[in-house]
Design a protein around this nucleic acid. Structure first.
Length: 488
RNA sequence: GGCGGCGUAGCCAAGCGGCUAAGGCAGGGGACUGCAAAUCCCUUAUUCGGCGGUUCGAAUCCGCCCGCCGCCUCCA
């Protein structure tokens, strides 16, 4: 497949270091608050990449870290009067809930920084030994001037950066651009330089090396991490190992609100939890992948509602069982349907730098085909083997495509618990036996209703239909059988 | 100032040198249905921010201009 590489600023053919094996690292959240839609975009972008690479047959080792020690976490802990560990724990839990709701597949490893302090210290020690770092009064800094490739990812020279002014003046540093590897801080972790804690960038370099090795295939994150975070990671890692750190740098674009970046400081963010109150996880996923991952995406309720409507079309056909309920005939039914295999088109779209909008358009082609067949079958009031075969193939393709893009199919078919409760109450009211499986309960109701229809007690039967429709079900009667699905 | 990105129908969004400019949302007309929902058929950009240039041929390449945004400080 092709991937855009920030380092070369080109779309490149993706060739991992080891054939059929991919090592991927993505910067996870700093856990000091609930994650917002920007975090969701990053998580979902790389989730789709992860799933797609696996689909292509690669064995992927995917690592996403939790930065659970940092200035902001400590600040938050002070504000709330709890320990930094409690803050981190709380928001890791929150993040994991969000990931679950968005159906983001668990990475192979999700290490926490505080579980790897020793590795970090070893890393820093080695950098000092090699002359790439120096200690001043309990702090350790990276000596930027010693690393000749500094700036190669963000495309800026040391002179440019200095001219950029806004560089913090720190008397301790040899060069204002040197960055902290270790920060002196009482009460944290013992080290050869006294008690302290890791600087911001060192944790990723350390964890990459520990879990994946000196050179990895893909390193991802939001565009805003290019500088300084990823630039500094390169400096640390390549200074230590002398080997290329990352083959493909992949960065996702921002979530925008009114043409401004969604961010904490602008206070224009929606947390994932806020969004989930109004939109199901599948809809948020649809919204976020309906734009190519490198293009900025505009967040607004209007756009989210469009995504909701669009996704509903997919959902409807996915759940529609009308065709399967049509009576099967051996006779030929004159038609000009033929199966078109869209798999290649779908896969090619994703192979082209993860073109998810294009992939979605292929899904709609399959959706249309299915709807055409269903509609045709209903108009003839029957189906045959030929049509059923095509129908089933399309249905299978649809399922496959939705799975690759990470949609939660189980969630699609699941009934909201309050609806389930109402159904049970209703069955009870009709004097029907309660069953554990809710679909069995529904069958009971519909069987009961069909007996009424047989006895020509239409008025009562219609009342039952009305009740189910009010609960959000689509009810369609066919000779001897009744079709239902929950549309919400 | 340095580096990077964006501008395609009412809205969202693919396309990145050549078949009739994908797809979705919204809208209009028709069909099906007792009604509704879902769905089907038809319909919605001679044109891709502007102006030049390269080319047999450009939304796609080059130049200039206009507008918007991001990074350069913590940030997905």
């Amino acid at each position: 497949m092709k991937l855009y590489n920030t380092l070369t600023q080109k779309k490149e053919e993706f060739k991992p270091l080891k054939e059929n094996q991919v090592k991927m690292y993505v910067c996870g959240p700093t856990v000091y608050d609930h994650a917002h839609l920007g975090h969701a975009r990053s998580a979902i972008t790389f989730d789709v990449l992860y799933r797609f690479l696996e689909f292509l047959g690669y064995k992927v080792t995917y690592v996403r870290n939790y930065t659970d020690i940092d200035d902001k976490i400590i600040k938050k802990a002070k504000e709330e009067g709890i320990s930094y560990k409690e803050v981190a724990e709380k928001y890791i839990k929150s993040y994991e809930e969000d990931m679950k709701a968005l159906n983001v597949k668990k990475p192979t490893y999700t290490p926490k920084v505080t579980d790897h302090i020793k590795d970090i210290i070893d890393f820093v020690k080695a950098l000092i030994e090699k002359g790439y770092a120096y200690e001043v009064d309990g702090d350790v800094y990276f000596r930027v001037s010693k690393f000749k490739d500094y700036g190669k990812l963000s495309k800026r020279s040391l002179e440019d950066m200095l001219k950029g002014a806004r560089v913090e003046i720190n008397e301790k540093k040899e060069n204002p651009l040197d960055f902290a590897l270790w920060k002196k801080d009482k009460g944290f972790f013992p080290s050869p330089w006294g008690e302290g804690r890791p600087g911001w960038h060192i944790e990723c370099s350390t964890l990459v090396r520990k879990y994946l090795g000196d050179t990895i295939d893909i390193h991802g994150g939001g565009l805003d991490l290019i500088f300084p975070h990823h630039e500094n990671e390169i400096a640390q890692s390549e200074a230590l190992t002398g080997k290329p750190f990352v083959l493909y740098w992949v960065h996702n674009g921002f979530v925008m609100v009114n043409k401004e970046k969604m961010s904490k400081s602008l206070k224009n963010f929606w947390t994932i939890k806020d969004a989930l109150k109004e939109y199901e996880g599948n809809v948020l996923r649809y919204f976020l992948i309906s734009v190519h991952y490198r293009t900025p995406i505009d967040f607004s309720k209007e756009n989210l509602n469009q995504a909701k409507q669009a996704f509903k079309k997919i959902k409807n056909v996915y759940l529609d069982k009308a065709f399967e309920f049509l009576p099967l005939t051996k006779k030929e039914i004159k038609n000009n349907f033929e199966y078109i295999d869209y798999k290649k088109e779908f896969i090619e779209a994703l192979k082209d730098d993860l073109n998810t909008p294009k992939a979605l358009s292929v899904i709609f082609k399959v959706v249309d085909k299915l709807n055409e067949i269903i509609s045709f079958g209903i108009s003839k009031r029957k189906r045959n083997e030929y049509l059923t075969n095509i129908y089933e193939k399309y249905k299978k393709d649809l399922k496959l495509f939705l799975e690759i893009l990470g949609f939660n199919l189980k969630e699609l078919e699941k009934l909201p618990s309050h609806i389930e409760k109402e159904i049970r109450n209703f069955a009870n009211l009709l004097g029907l036996e309660d069953k554990e499986d809710i679909s069995m309960v529904l069958e009971e109701i519909l069987n009961y209703r069909n007996r009424l229809r047989k006895e020509k007690k239409f008025e009562e039967a219609d009342k039952i239909r009305e009740k189910l429709e009010n609960l959000g079900f689509v009810i369609k009667d066919f000779p001897g059988k009744t079709l239902y699905y929950f549309k919400g």
